[in-house]
């Protein structure tokens, strides 16, 4: 079904999509982007591979178990677990602050220039202020939920 053009373009485009997705994920805590949109973008890459190369190639790529009889076995089962883990990460990112005595979902930012050990690094030309936002953990959770959820839908519906 698929043409040489489609297969070649997919080969070229998929890494770029994934790279854009990751960059959106990393800047999401204070710039346009975030876990949701990065997750959707990642799914388009997987969906492209799925459409052009078929489900089997995706399975070798991701490394899911053999498909079984049930609804959520094989690859969909892997995706569904990803979804659950992501939910746990996102919820956990909110709960950690309560354990530290702050309200639920409280976030903070660590500026690397304030950390003595890596202070010199931030003074290098072209690096500037580096920050580590705790909201990133929450974003990763959202990312996993979106990727897991959408891919479960795509693969289960695709199998029927």
């Amino acid at each position: 079904m698929t043409t040489v053009i489609a297969r070649t373009v997919t080969r070229v485009v998929v890494p770029f999509i994934l790279l854009t997705a990751v960059s959106l994920l990393f800047q999401g805590h204070n710039l346009p982007g975030g876990g949701f949109i990065a997750g959707v973008l990642t799914c388009t890459a997987f969906a492209l591979v799925y459409i052009i190369y078929g489900q089997e190639s995706l399975r070798t790529l991701v490394g899911g178990s053999e498909p079984g009889d049930g609804v959520l076995t094989g690859l969909p089962g892997t995706y569904a677990r990803l979804f659950a883990v992501g939910l746990g990460v996102a919820a956990g990112a909110g709960v950690v602050s309560t354990a530290l005595g702050y309200p639920f979902l409280t976030q903070t930012v660590l500026y690397l220039s304030d950390v003595p050990a890596v202070h010199a690094l931030t003074e290098l030309p072209g690096i500037g202020t580096l920050e580590v936002a705790s909201a990133f953990v929450f974003d990763v959770g959202v990312y996993l939920v979106v990727v897991g959820g959408l891919l479960t839908i795509v693969s289960v519906v695709g199998r029927e």
């Binding site: 959520l72 883990v85 746990g88 709960v95």
Partner: peptide
């Protein structure tokens, strides 16, 4: 809220 949320997540993980 948290008890219900965490139960929802753990029951999903324990599928």
């Amino acid at each position: 809220l948290l008890v219900a949320l965490l139960t929802a997540v753990t029951t999903l993980l324990a599928r």
